[in-house]
Design a protein around this nucleic acid. Structure first.
Length: 221
DNA sequence: AACTCGGGGCA
DNA sequence: TGCCCAGAGTT
């Protein structure tokens, strides 16, 4: 497999072909990922995604049950205040900002969107606490839109492997990836690249010896 | 483009 | 203790 892949790579391999190679590996070695893309409802998804900024998913998952128990709907959260939300999320990153953002988001959803989470990326970004990354996550994962969310992991891993070339910021990475990744693979690709970046292709001291796709990786060669 | 928000996990 | 972390908003 390794030798064969090396031979294949020595001739020309497009980024689309490169993506197919790694997505094939991930699909065989991270079968859990598919189910982790399930969501209960758009409200819980967008709240969870906002909370996940600069914070590990484990801490978010420890926090959300109590939060949704007290504020199960957009309407209930819209009637809250940041001061009431803060203690429920104080153990995650930037609790003050996020408490403010969550309440502001809920208020805007009720006031301007009829209490319904929009599926359009540009509409999503109008919400407090929702930037381009969060908007793309919600659009692609919840609404199956052709959007690619790029966080620090996706940015770094894509550059190292060679999925992107010369991308200087997350937006450029996004623009390159959406060009050749099939629409129905964008959400799962986001998830896989994050997991790979978190546990193997780390920012410092990446574990190349444990990496299953180093055969295809520009950074490793 | 640079700066701020920020508590918890881990070496 | 010091360093780091699934970004977003402001200046």
């Amino acid at each position: 497999m390794g030798r064969q892949a090396g031979i294949v790579f020595r001739r020309f391999m497009s980024r689309k072909e490169l993506f197919e190679k790694i997505i094939d590996y991930f699909s065989k070695h991270m079968p859990v990922a598919e189910t982790e893309l399930d969501y209960t409802d758009p409200y819980e998804m967008i709240v969870s995604t906002i909370l996940s900024a600069q914070c590990t998913d484990k801490r978010v998952n420890m926090t959300t049950p109590a939060l949704f128990a007290k504020y199960p709907t957009v309407q209930s959260l819209a009637k809250a205040t940041p001061e009431k939300v803060f203690p429920l999320i104080k153990s995650i990153s930037y609790p003050n900002n996020k408490a403010k953002h969550l309440v502001g988001m809920a208020k805007m959803l009720v006031k301007d969107f009829g209490g319904v989470v929009p599926s359009d990326v540009n509409e999503l970004q109008k919400l407090p606490g929702v930037g381009r990354k969060t908007a793309n996550v919600v659009a692609s994962v919840v609404f199956n839109k052709p959007a690619m969310a790029v966080d620090t992991h996706v940015f770094r891993v894509s550059a190292r492997i060679g999925l992107t070339v010369g991308a200087k910021n997350p937006l450029q990475t996004e623009m390159q990836l959406v060009k050749y990744i099939p629409e129905n693979k964008l959400a799962i690709a986001h998830h896989w690249l994050i997991l790979h970046g978190r546990y193997v292709c780390t920012a410092r001291n990446p574990k190349c010896s444990e990496c299953g796709i180093k055969e295809f990786c520009k950074y490793f060669r």
